[in-house]
Amino acid sequence: MLKSLMKSKLFWPIVILVIILLINLFFDRGFFQIEVRNGRLAGSLVDILNRGAPLMLISIGMTLVIATKGIDLGVGSVIALSGAIAATTVADASEGSLAPLFAAIALAIFVCMVAGAWNGFLVSRIGVQPIVATLILMVAGRGVAQLVTQGQITTVYYDPYTFIGGGYLLGLPFSIFIVVAVLLLALFVTRKTAMGLFIESVGSNPEASRLSGINSKNILMMVYIFSGFCAAIGGLILSSNVASADGNNAGLWYELDAILAVVIGGTSLMGGRFYLMGTIIGALIIQSLTTTIYSIGIPPETNMVVKAIVVLIVCLLQSPEFRSKVFGSFKAKKAVESEDDKGVTLS
C-alpha cells in the first residue's frame, strides 16, 4: 500500500509541500488556523491559495506546452500584456455598468490567445525551436504592453475590476474559483477527450504521431493558445489585485516559476507524460516557500539564495536516480523499484 503510494508521481511533491507547511507551524503556532472574518475565510493557508492563483494558472498552461517537448517563455510578458489591455479598457469606465468589465476580460483573453497562436504558429508551422520562438514574445510582449499603457503605470479606479483578484465568493477568494474552473477545464479536455493522449504522443515522438494520423501541428497550436489563455487570466488576476497595470514589471519571471512548478510536479522537460495535479502542487510549493521566507523573517537579501537551495533539494528528491543512490544503500528494495522507472528491455 505504502509502496504503491510512494511510486505515485505526486508522493514526493506532496511530502515536500507538507514539510514546508510544517516548518511554518513551528515558527507560527497559528499557521493552520482558519477563521471567519466578516463572513470570509482568512488565514495563511487561504492566503497561499489566493496568492498562488496566478502561478497555478500559468503553470497549468505551461504543463501542456512542456508535455509537447516545448516551452513557453512568453507567459510573463503575456501577463503584462493582459493586465495592460484590461486596465486600459476599464480605466475610464463608469461604476454603474458591468459591461466594461466583461469587455476588458474578453479583449485581454482574446489578444493573449492571439499571442499564443503566434507562438504556436512559429513552432508548428515555421518550425522554430520553442525556446527561440517564445523568446520573441517574451521580449516583444512586454514592449507591446508598455505601448498599450504608454509607458506609464495605468491605475484603475473602476471597482468591479478589483473583484477578479480581490473579490470573495462563498467566503473564499474568487481567484481560487478561477483556478479550479481552469483546472477542471484542462483536466476535462486532456482526460475525457483524446487531447491528453495526443499531446503525450506528440511530445514523446512527433514523427511516429504524424504517421499514426495525428495532426501534430494543430496540437502544438492548441497548447500554445491554451498557454496564452491561462496567462491572460493570470494577468487579469495580478492586475486586478493592485488595480493597476505595469507593463514593465507585471508578471516578471513568472515563466521561470511556472517551468519550475511543472518540473517539480513530475512532468519531464523532454515531453511526454504530464501531471496537472503535480503541477498544481508544484506551484503551491513555490508559493508557500515565498510566503514562508517572508513570514519566518529571513532577511530579504538572502531570499533568493534560500529559495534556490530549497528548490535544489526538491529537484534532487524528485529524481529516482538520486533517491536510489542516497537511500538505496540501506534499502536495497528501493533500488529495484527505481529500476523499472528507467525502463527495462527484456529480450
Partner: peptide, 28 residues
C-alpha cells in the same frame, strides 16, 4: 523513430491510430 511512442503504454500505443481517425472529441 517512426513507430513507437516510448513514454506511452501498450494500450495507448495500440489505439493511437484509431483515435487519430476519430479525432480528439470522440474519445474511445
Amino acid at each position: 523513430a517512426e513507430g513507437i511512442i516510448p513514454e506511452l503504454t501498450i494500450r495507448e500505443n495500440m489505439i493511437l491510430a484509431m483515435q487519430g481517425m476519430y479525432g480528439w472529441f470522440k474519445y474511445i
